[in-house]
Design a protein around this nucleic acid. Structure first.
Length: 963
RNA sequence: GCCCCCGUAGCCCAAUAGGCAGAGGCAGCAGACUUAAAAUCUGCAGAGUGUGGGUUCGAGUCCCACCGGGGGCACCA
């Protein structure tokens, strides 16, 4: 670049050092190189085919590296210094991999639908599209200034019509699929719905009521098909959040029954809503966690959320028919002394006789005259409790006898059936067999209600607890046909399941905590459903060629919200307010007809379920993604192992999406895999959770936040205090936020230090996965490093390049190559903090030389490039190279220069260092032992004691152990 | 209550496989430059690794208990 001639640089005002690397110089260099990269398309990544293919590019011959950040949400507040942390880290990795020869795919798109955008728009009175697009523009500007090496051609936003179209298209593929549980050897697979219809038509599948397919009416057939779709409308208990005016997925509701966003109460209501059959994939979602490289913590969270547990269902006969229970401990059946059903269990009424049986104990009836009153009273009480009260820890067990008995299938015992709210309708069958001897909850209930306790596992001697839940030999567990006595728990389970199955009273089953995904929201700012309803009120897909279905303009896009605890309210979608949009005449095959549109919108997770695919092939309007391009970037990589599921090579983001986005995206991806649209079975092969940048905030005596940047630290002998405006203030540690008055923005950092310094600082603060406090005062250290680097190459007084063209000295060479070796290892492992300290070390070494040899300076500049790309480009260019260094080879260490000429051997006596020896690295143990024993310092330390033992770890250590 | 992660200098953090506790940075101190200050440069000092046990010739690293911080799960049968 011709403009890098030093004469074009304006000397700084500082008289002595007119060519020092200052923030002003940095700013000038950074903007210039950012323009250069954009103009030259430096980071345009070639695809193997399609619009982004490049004729001469070596795509197949290079290693590919697909790198992704978690989707940013363009907030109206703009960025603070915490936001770019992950983006810088992925940028460093991408730049490093590119210099290592990889074809690197890295871009950034925007997740722009959703509640915050809608709320921000409501606040500002503007259309969400307008505010969202402005926010994206602002964020793009802030991020561009960081110098991220993204391929700008691959950026997009989820609200783009060209993107919405494919989101809706994927929805329709899910809608037009069913899960064939028999496929792939019982693992199951999604298949096109037409194949299900064909199977019914061919008589290969039975209709639910046994009638022939041909005898059914069109509506009857559609109902049968509709309820088997992977996306289906269902009337079922859902999470209704009046405060937000929408229903929510289980994943969006916290353990204490509130909305994750906004913290409003959530109520269970029966409503007709779209569901996604994620439960069909429960096993694969659990099993395939073993095939991907994710933090164990996130895998655990997903496993917990899916909550697979193996056990048995067992039917107990009652006067109301069989009641099915789920148990993980079928081995303890002989110890089942009562049964409990949830208050909401559908058989409760049928189980309630008109009068108490004679054997009913006083404790069981709750003092009510009849079972009917008792049950009604208990149910009312249970319903009035909040979720939190129901789940409160160490709560006394409550419940009431139904008045009925069930028969234990293993021994014919008549056992009482209770209703109690410690049994949850939402798990298993909502009914349990209670085995107090082996279950602490059942034990507590049995004590409270005076019920018998039979141990069926022998606790060890000295066991003084109540329920015994560990392994041990079975006891008291035999009938005329089978005896479990003496068996360990696992064997007993297998044996009893076999017996139950032979009797037809039970079978081995697996249950899951995971529920189907509630997919509709009653909000404005989301993707409309590409669905209309006909005169039968049955859903009909909008044909692909009519996509996207655009959002209509509405008079009021703010949702209808209610008092947070107004449980009996009903969701009212904003789209329903535009009848001219809702009612349409369409020709969907049977001539023009009037249809009613679905007025829900998709949750904002929809867009992030497949955005990894759009990066690959962002312009494609023929297919969701070209299969060849998908295979190249995401397909299975045999070198990673035989059973590699493929996926993004590195995905960096916070841990907060562990069971939301990351579960939903895996689900969608597997559906697309089953249907043959992608070759990868998992979307994200390697996941890395970055830590957060935290900050201090300060409150005054009234508890009000004061501006953090104006707080002064006072250090006395004993304690540190903080003062604002002469008054002591209290320091707290946490997030950065406007209301906390502690926000520091990237723009301030660019202005005061430049983007490179900011990047170096963020990367050197600590390991990427650890959260740490922001400290503006410490940023200067990173500026000093870059200044010294600059000074090693450029004269501060003349602006001339001052490196020497003579070869480097031996010692400098060794330092350089040891640094290369260490930096590569650190970069490969995403340890940018230690990589930077190595660079600083080398830089400091060069600073001490009279003249800096070119060979060392160039290596250092190249290695600094991933983390501080602008200054590196500038120095590289001034060192006489034309063009960008973005594709230069990252330095490779010469193994011959890695071995030290001598090593320091530490000589210990009784573990304490007493002497040091300079020895060749190849020194053998015997020589070292002799050298150590000959040491005067050792003799002195031994002080006449005999030598018991000498431990030699050549070449670094000898430990002399006195007798 | 159960499970997981983390505690190293005033602060942020290093320390291959158990083998010299310190790589790097901030702050501090001294000196240089300056009329002075800032900036910059040079140099210096600073902890025995949260606590108590144990294993070992040797423990920041391994084991046990506890304390402190963070996170996950939580009547899931």
């Amino acid at each position: 670049m011709s403009e890098t001639d030093p004469s074009t640089m304006t000397p700084a005002a500082d008289g002595d050092v007119p060519y020092r690397y200052t923030s002003a110089v940095a700013g000038e260099i950074e903007r210039r190189w950012q323009d250069h990269w954009e103009f030259k398309g430096t980071f345009a990544t070639p695809n193997p085919t399609g619009t982004l293919a490049e004729p001469g590019a070596d795509v197949a011959g290079r290693n590919k590296f697909f790198l992704m950040d978690m989707f940013p949400y363009p907030s109206g507040a703009g960025l603070h210094v915490g936001h770019p942390l992950g983006y810088i880290a992925t940028d460093v990795t991408g730049r490093y991999r590119r210099m290592c020869g990889d074809n690197v795919l890295h871009a950034l798109a925007y997740d722009a639908f959703g509640l915050p955008a809608e709320q921000y728009a409501v606040q500002t009175g503007q259309h969400p599209r307008k505010t969202t697009e402005e926010n994206i523009t602002n964020m793009r500007r802030q991020l561009r200034r960081l110098g991220l090496a993204h391929d700008p051609r691959r950026s997009f936003a989820t609200i783009d019509p060209g993107y919405v179209r494919w989101t809706q298209w994927i929805f329709l593929r899910i809608f037009n699929s069913w899960y064939d549980t028999e496929a792939d050897g019982g693992r199951g697979r999604a298949r096109p719905i037409d194949e299900l219809v064909a199977a019914y038509e061919a008589g290969e599948r039975q209709t639910p009521d046994g009638r022939a397919w041909a005898e059914l009416s069109d509506v009857e057939r559609r109902r049968i098909i509709d309820e088997q779709r992977l996306a289906f409308v269902s009337e079922s208990p859902v999470n209704w959040c009046p405060g937000l005016g929408t229903v929510l997925a289980n994943e969006e509701v916290t353990a204490d029954g509130r909305s994750e966003r906004g913290n409003y109460p959530v109520f269970k209501r029966n409503l007709r809503q779209w569901m996604m059959r994620i439960t069909a994939y429960a096993d694969r979602l659990v099993d395939d966690l073993d095939r991907i490289d994710w933090p164990e913590k996130v895998k655990t969270m997903q496993r917990n959320w899916i909550g697979r547990s193996a056990g048995a269902s067992v039917r107990f006969s009652t006067s109301a028919g069989d009641v099915e229970v789920f148990t993980t401990r079928p081995d303890t059946l002989f110890g089942a002394t009562f049964m409990v059903v949830a208050p909401e269990h559908p058989l409760v009424e049928a189980l309630t006789p008109s009068a108490w049986p004679e054997s009913a104990k006083d404790a069981w009836t709750g003092g009510y005259a009849t079972p009917g009153e008792a049950i009604a009273g208990y149910r009312a009480q249970a319903a009035a409790k909040t979720e939190l009260e129901r789940q409160a820890d160490e709560r006394e067990k409550t419940g009431v006898f139904t008045g009925s008995f069930a028969t234990n299938p293993v021994n014919g015992e008549r056992i009482p059936v209770f209703v109690a709210d410690y049994v949850l309708m939402g798990y298993g069958t909502g009914a349990i067999m209670a085995v107090p001897g082996q279950d602490q909850r059942d034990w507590e209930f049995a004590e409270r209600f005076d019920l018998p306790i039979i141990r069926t596992v022998q606790p060890p001697d000295g066991f003084d607890g109540k329920a015994f839940t560990a392994d041990g030999p079975a006891i008291n567990s035999a009938n005329d046909e089978i005896s479990l006595d003496g068996m360990a728990v696992d064997d007993a389970k297998t044996a009893i399941i076999g017996w139950l199955e032979s009797k037809g009273t039970g079978e081995g089953t697996v249950t899951y905590r995971l529920r189907d995904w509630l997919f509709s929201r009653q909000r404005y700012w989301g993707e409309p459903f590409p669905i209309v309803y006909d005169e039968n009120d049955l859903p009909v897909a909008i044909p692909d060629e009519m996509l996207p279905v655009d959002l209509p303009d509405v008079p009021d896009y703010s949702p209808k919200t209610y008092e947070p605890d107004a449980a009996d309210t009903t969701p009212e979608p904003p789209l329903a307010r535009v009848p001219e949009w809702v009612y349409v005449e369409l020709d969907l095959g049977d001539g023009p007809k009037r249809y009613r549109r679905d007025t829900n919108t998709m949750p904002n997770w929809a867009g992030s379920c497949w955005y990894h695919l759009r990066y690959l092939d962002p312009d494609n309007d023929e297919q969701v993604v070209d299969p060849e391009i998908e295979r190249y970037w995401m397909g299975p990589q045999p070198q990673r192992g035989e059973n590699d599921p493929g996926g993004v090579d590195l995905y960096v983001g916070g841990v907060e999406h562990a069971v939301l986005h990351l579960l939903y995206a895996r689900f969608w991806h597997k559906v697309l895999f089953d249907l043959g649209y992608v070759s990868s079975e998992e979307p994200y092969h390697r996941l890395f959770n970055q830590g957060y940048i935290q900050a201090f905030a300060y409150t005054d005596a009234r508890g009000q936040y004061v501006p953090a940047e104006a707080v002064v630290e006072k250090v006395d002998d004993a304690e540190t205090t903080y003062v604002y405006d002469g008054q002591p203030v209290h320091r707290e540690y946490g997030k950065m936020g406007k209301s906390l008055k502690n926000v520091v923005t990237p723009d301030e950092m660019y202005e005061a230090y430049g983007a490179d310094t900011f990047r170096v600082y963020e990367m050197s603060m600590g390991p990427l996965d650890v959260s740490r406090p922001w400290d503006t005062r410490a940023v200067v250290g990173s500026l000093r490093f870059l200044q010294r680097l600059w000074r090693n190459v450029i004269s501060e007084s003349t602006g001339e390049v001052i490196v020497a063209d003579e070869p480097a000295g031996d010692e400098t060479r060794r330092v350089v190559h040891r640094t290369i070796d260490a930096v590569r290892a650190d970069m490969d492992a995403l340890r940018f903090n230690t990589a930077i300290s190595r660079l600083i070390e080398l830089n400091n070494h060069l600073t001490k030389l009279d003249t800096v040899p070119r060979e060392a300076a160039e290596v250092l500049v190249l290695m600094t490039a991933p983390v501080a790309p602008h200054i590196a480009e500038e120095l590289w260019s001034r060192l006489g190279h034309s063009g960008s260094l973005a594709h230069e080879a990252f330095p490779v260490a010469d193994p011959a220069l890695l071995a030290a000429e001598t090593v320091t051997c530490v000589v210990q006596v009784a573990g304490k260092v007493r002497d040091r020896l300079e020895v060749p690295p190849s020194v053998d143990e015997d020589t070292l032992r002799e050298l150590a024993l000959a040491s005067e310092a050792v003799t002195r330390a031994l002080d006449g004691r005999a030598v018991r033992k000498v431990i030699v770890r050549a070449p670094k250590l000898v430990n002399v152990v006195p007798g």
